[in-house]
Structures are given as structure tokens and as C-alpha cells.
Amino acid sequence: MKFSKEHEWVKLEGDTAIIGITDYAAHQLGDIVFVELPNKGSKLEVNKVFGTIESVKTVSDVFAPMTGEVIEVNDELDANPALVNEDPTGNGWIVKIKVSNPNEYDQLLDEAAYKAICE
């Protein structure tokens, strides 16, 4: 798993990337009440906003850590946005994309480097 400076995580499985927000980000946001998801088939562009996450008193943009086409979105977040708080790197995933440029993965931070920017 790798991380972006904007607090997203990515798991790369073949040419599929699973994307969510980090434990740190979920904690900072507090009680998450709504996740605005992109449509299946839409294109994500690296470092561009692709959705928003609302907590009780704040709203935060979600940035694409990699470029690609959305092949699946986590529909369960509609009914249960709290999943992002409870299990941000597991059941609280946000989208799966088919990556267009696997090299972008190498540009992302490893766990140690990410931890360093959170401190």
C-alpha cells in the first residue's frame, strides 16, 4: 500500500488500483456523514479532485492518487458512510480504477514517508 500527500491510500492489484482515505485523514475529519462518489466509467486524473467527504462540520476534497477509469465504486458508503471511520483502509474503500499509468504508483509515498508528513 502506498500513500499520497493528500492523505489517500492506494493498493495496486495488477492494473486495478483500490483507493480510499487514510486512517489519519478519517480521524482528522471526525464523524463522516456523506461520501460523494464518482460515476462508474468516469475518468480520474492524478492530483485532481474526484469526490468530496463530508463530516458533521467540515467538507474535504478527495484527490486522485493515480490516473484511470472508475470500474467500481463502494456503494455501501451511501447507506453507511461511517465505514470510512471504522475501517478506512478496508471496508471503507472508495473507488477501484483501471490505472492508465502504473508508473504513477512509484511516485507515491511509502508508509514511513507518509507517517513523517502526518507528524
Binding site: 456523514v33 456523506f34 463530508e54 463530516s55 458533521v56 462540520k57 467540515t58 467538507v59
Partner: peptide, 10 residues
């Protein structure tokens, strides 16, 4: 409720 839609936050 649903205050994250509003101007004081967005």
C-alpha cells in the same frame, strides 16, 4: 444538519 453544504463551511 447537513451543514457541510453551506457557505460557512464550503
Amino acid at each position: 444538519t447537513l451543514q457541510a453544504r453551506e457557505q460557512h463551511i464550503r
